[in-house]
Nucleic acid binder design. Sequence first.
DNA 1: GCCGTTTTCGGCCCGACTGTTTTCAGTCG
Length: 572
Amino acid sequence: MKNHLIAEMFEQMADVLEFKGEIPFKVNAYRKASRIIKDLQIDIETLWKANKLNTIPGVGSGLAKKIDEFLETGRMTKYEEIVHSVPPGLIDLLKIQSLGPKTLALVHKKLNVETLEDLKRVIQDGSLAQLPGMGEKKAENILKGIQLREKGLGRIALGIALPLVEEIIKELKKLSHVGRIYPAGSVRRMRETVGDIDILAETDHGEEIVKKFVSLPHVTRVLAAGKTKGSVLVEGNIQVDLRAIKSASYGAALQYFTGSKAHNIRLREIAKRQGLKINEYGIFDGEKNIGGEKEEEIYNVLGLIWIPPELREDRGEIEAAKEKNLPELVTLEDINGDFHVHTEWSDGSGTIEEIVAKAEELGYSFVVISDHSQSAAYAGGLTPEKLVEQIKEIKRIGERTKKIRVLCGTEVDIHADGSLDFSDELLEKLDIVIAAVHSGFKQKVTERLIAAARNPNVTIIAHPTGRIISQREGYQLDLEKVMKVCAETGTALEINSYYERLDLNDINARKAKEMGIKLAIGTDAHHPNQMHSMRLGLGVARRAWIEKKDLLNALSLEKILQLKGKKKQECK
DNA sequence: GCCGTTTTCGGCCCGACTGTTTTCAGTCG
């Protein structure tokens, strides 16, 4: 699959063209095409073979020709020409905050800056500040940008951001004059990582709430504290912004600050075509405000139905909203159970009883106990004898509780040769079998996952790509091949809810859905409290346009066991 | 470079903030 590669090439071309002062619209055309290709649900090579490159929005004859050349010959002449026209590494400097293409072009031309070291030197010796349009402050800000980058201040996991936001909101809600208060930005869209955190508060007393905000115990540094906006750093160098918004424009502000950028650009284009204008204060017909108190108003005025934040990525949601054809996204209330939970029988730290109690508290009708198998020695994996013993114990506990079904499961290792860590005979005794790769990440992972999917006893493939957010790339595998077999055999794929995994991710989960594969959220909890992370996996599912019918967790237990029985029949 | 209820040219999202400037360019989200 070359989608990512091509998207990356166009992005690089956009950077260089911008640096060279090419008209912004051309630069944007490359950026837009890059983003859309990256998000594409199908292999761009498939479209190419069907002569359908021009059906990709943002790809016209010019870009289609470049893609065509690349897929035909493995090279893109224009790319090489453009990217090689600047010193290597120079364009990377654009990632420094406060240093944009214009400034970079200036220091490159006038001061021969080509590397980060060069840049530091011209700041320190004062020559950058001497350039026309530059000054002490500019130089200082760029230096701060460099330091920020060197400190590696990146994006943080949603699982870290969400609890933090909730604590802050809980504190601010105590003020009597605060009405609606929600996170905006990528937190509200449930992206797997977030840059900084935006919170919007409905209030007429901006100064007061900002004062309270910047004096919260979480705050390590106050960056700004005005009448309508406060900006702070909290522990872990996470930036949190609070905006005080008047009632009349709260909906417009929430819409505006939720983004995504691409989604908002599309909305403003639509508005413009209708002779309207959208900004963070409302939607306007000339000078006249025709909406903005509620977020729905912005969408409705444009002839769209309200779009759930998780869908706002310009991945087809606007077209669907126009047709009133948005998916009915699965909600937390739809979740009937958790498929992936560990106990102290392997490397978890809760008892089976504690897990069951937590599942009851969460209102589930079932929970699957799925401890590790024998090969996972590092995780205290169960021997076959231990598993037999555990099955008895689970049944004993299950009989005592009437409210909930406690299911026997396992997270069984897939060996390097594709065989499973327990015999089929033993696996048959279980209600749910989750199969996973935990070692040999570079050894024929595609073939191993396919072999597991073909096993009639395997219900779910866990964390299918093996990626760890901002730490590990994931297995070397051809996911599409694996998905084809899953679709064929009726094997479900997991959306692992652990905050550093979220695997499958939104794009792959959506692709799975479109291939007719069922998804199953598993929290991979190693302590009963971690079962609350269901909402992270749910966020991924919603971003993937998943509806009740696509998600095993939202089906009745009868239906789940029926699907499992069907797979067994067909695989035999 | 893309695109079309302003169709094959002439547009292309919007505003805040900052720092450099006396009216605006650059950067960011």
